[in-house]
Design a protein around this nucleic acid. Structure first.
Lengths: 160, 160
DNA sequence: ATCTAATATATAGATATCTATGTATAAATG
DNA sequence: CATTTATACATAGATATCTATATATTAGAT
């Protein structure tokens, strides 16, 4: 399954395509490999999407609505509704009705959710270490603002 | 839906996390935005995954097995089986049995598939142009080999 | 030659994702 | 105040993705 180092995929396998496509193809493959790698180090049943929600809320120490979470993660609202429901089913978050606006439910991480996230972060530390050791540190520093620039551009060219 | 320029997501919103995680988060968001953007310019019913298969086979002018395609796209074999089946349902590819090994079926693009792919490429050209115009060209040249380096590392640290 | 191991693909079940649409509530407008 | 518009969320239906497993076929090993 890893023995397919044939002729082309040396640079994402899109030699004849515009370089922008090649970058996007490479990003797509990295995203898949990284998600699989991260997932394999997360607790049983916990997905990257679910972990990201817990991590976001706990890191910023906030409670947010489903729509706010969807915007923060750049996913559609029904996608976040689904992820939040699964977290709720496991008792990792609670949905708190807003007393002033009954349309709104805010996502609050439970103690169980906080503990599980902390365990997950600890399990991911060696993964980050491996990445850090095998890629020159400058690369990470240089590539992040470039990616941010591309992300902002893509975000702007969305149709609202 | 785009008006969420609050405090944090200036650099993928992972300030407290290792920079490797921040890069991966940014890549995840770019991947989603790019897939949505590309998809919105593809013919009705055609997905990025399906287009990628057609494009791969036609660009290299080859026929490949499902497993070979899965390796090339870095997805699991059942994933590729599913994508190939949908392309077959639309008459865009044909599955050709190998006369010497009856386990194998090779994916061959039909004339309809080739035409549809060419139309899709044409529709994507202005998308690439927009990206090229809004990001300094050096960035694309610089970022691609860096991404490749990361992708190769991630590919190596897969558990087979 | 038979029995076992490896390979190619398919099937099942789960989550994430999208678009399109429905429902309830709140705000704005006349 | 009644009607309309906007907002927050849920539901439905579709594709992509994974892991785990089953089936069929080929290759290898006694």
């Amino acid at each position: 399954m890893t023995e397919d180092m044939r002729a082309e995929p040396k640079s994402a396998g899109l030699d004849g395509d515009p370089i922008e496509f090649a970058v996007m193809t490479e990003i797509g493959i990295i995203n898949q490999l990284a998600e699989n790698l991260f997932q394999s180090h997360l607790p049983k049943g916990m997905t990257v999407a679910q972990f990201s929600v817990l991590n976001h809320l706990l890191r910023l120490d906030v409670e947010e609505t489903i729509s706010e979470l969807a915007s923060a993660m750049q996913v559609a609202q029904p996608t976040m509704s689904s992820t939040v429901r699964r977290l709720e089913d496991k008792g990792l978050i609670q949905l708190i009705h807003d007393p002033d606006d009954r349309r709104i439910r805010r996502v609050a991480v439970t103690a169980a959710g906080a503990q599980l996230r902390n365990n997950a972060v600890a399990a991911l530390v060696p993964v980050a270490a491996t990445l850090r050791q095998n890629i020159p540190p400058d690369i990470w520093q240089v590539i992040l603002p470039q990616l941010t620039q591309i992300r902002v551009l893509l975000d702007q060219s969305r149709q609202p």
